[in-house]
Amino acid sequence: MNKSFLALLLILSFGITSNSEKVIARQGQVSFFSYTSVENIKAENNQVYSIINLQEGTIAVDMLMNAFVFEKALMREHFNESYIESDIYPKATFQGKIIDFDTNAQGTQIKMIKGAFKMHGVSKDIEIKTKIENNNGSYTLSGVFETFVKDYNINIPPLLAGNIAKSIAVNFKFEYQPYEN
């Protein structure tokens, strides 16, 4: 009785992490938009990394800030140097958990992701609604969320307050493939 209990514990404690199945996205797309009456700003990053641990429903995202491409070349320089300071904070990361993630359900499911988004040296707990598509074990996650510039210690000079929206819409889309160590 005790021995089998021990064996069960062993399997439980080590099995979870060593056998866990992961899927990874290496060319995830993240774009953000700032809409104001003066100017619309759009930027795209098509080299975002994301990984999901299917057993636990945990998810992580890692992106290089300088990989964002803008409509205007000079905006990219301003973004990297004056706003996001990507030489000091080169990356933005997210780690969290997909709530009630059903890995076996085929087709589309809408779930919430809770986790911490870290950008410009500031970590903030956020909740994101996401659409998960499962097509025979290949997962696609997409969604939109709003984020506030001032939450991340990013200063907009008063003169440009009309050009940059206080709330930025972030779009994301990740297509996952099986991850092998």
Partner: peptide
Amino acid sequence: AQDDLLDILNNEQEDATYV
């Protein structure tokens, strides 16, 4: 486990070389 996921991505992702 969550930190592991970010570590994996950190290894996968190329280093930030931008100046």
